[in-house]
């Protein structure tokens, strides 16, 4: 776990909206199997950063180096659009806060999972359906729901289906934008348990954007705190939460309501 190379190396990443700062001068390394949390209030730039990292938004400055299977470290900012989209279908996954942004609502649950497999070349119907059933099981969706459409699912089930659709191709890096946002707490707990298990079993690396400090404490190894587009503090998750150094982090931690 210590001697391997980073999976992702981010250097000087900045994004501006006119004169406004989206995110500025962000730099970090992420290693295989590591989960990094990004926290900050609304408008702190955490979602802008995530979208720049995942290739959904073009950054204005900086590099996002990813350790590709075929060619080693490549800057995903300057690679061609088809190459980046291929990464998005294979080694990368993106779990949206709202499942409907990451699912095709008019396609069956099995189709949602199978479609991503077909996008990377799977053609055998039996194999695809088998993989879909396997993945529905792993995210605790009953097999007899395979032909139902996501709109017939509860919010928590939709979110689990989105995760299955994303992970079926065996990605190495998963971007998550508030994956437990908008779900009630019992559903959140189930999802957290599921994500934690998948990260461990598949050796996934993940970057999780959230404003929920309890979620990052349980899922993330490392934490990055953002304010006004800048990273104001980074470190071990428990160290940042228990002994915050920056005034803003201290405010964030002390503002959490005790249950």
């Amino acid at each position: 776990m210590t001697q391997d190379n980073p999976l992702l190396q981010v250097e000087g990443l900045s994004k501006f909206y006119g004169h406004r700062i989206g995110c500025a001068d962000v730099a970090f390394d992420l290693y295989p199997g590591e989960v990094m949390g990004i926290v900050g209030e609304s408008g702190s730039g955490k979602s802008t950063l995530l979208n720049c990292l995942a290739g959904h938004l073009p950054p204005d400055k900086g590099r996002v180096m990813f350790d590709t299977r075929a060619e080693g470290m490549r800057d995903t900012v300057t690679m061609s659009e088809p190459e980046r989209r291929m990464l998005g279908r294979t080694d990368w996954a993106f779990v949206h806060q709202h499942a409907r942004d990451g699912l095709r609502m008019n396609v069956s649950a099995g189709g949602n999972v199978g479609e991503r497999l077909m996008a990377v070349g799977a053609r055998h119907y039996g194999d695809i359906r088998g993989a879909a059933i396997d993945w529905l099981g792993r995210v605790e969706i009953a097999e007899d729901r395979i032909d139902d459409r996501p709109r017939q699912f509860s919010g928590g089930m939709q979110q689990r289906l989105q995760i299955a659709r994303n992970l079926v191709t065996g990605p190495r890096l998963v971007f998550m934008d508030e994956p437990t946002g908008g779900l009630d707490v019992s559903v959140q707990a189930r999802l957290l348990d599921l994500l934690r298990g998948l990260v461990r079993e598949m050796g996934l690396s993940a970057i999780i954007v959230t404003h929920d400090l309890a979620v990052v404490r349980l899922l993330a190894h490392r934490l990055m705190v953002m304010k006004d587009g800048y990273v104001v503090e980074t470190g071990l998750t428990d160290q940042v939460l228990d002994d915050p150094q920056h005034g803003y982090t201290q405010l964030l931690v002390s503002s959490v309501l005790q249950v």
Binding site: E34, H221, Q239
Partner: peptide, 20 residues
């Protein structure tokens, strides 16, 4: 952080007062 995580995994245990 990475080196500390590795240390906690292989070398240094901690029994705190609270289970999390």
């Amino acid at each position: 952080p990475r080196a500390i995580l590795e240390l906690r995994r292989t070398t240094l245990g901690y029994v705190s007062q609270f289970l999390r």
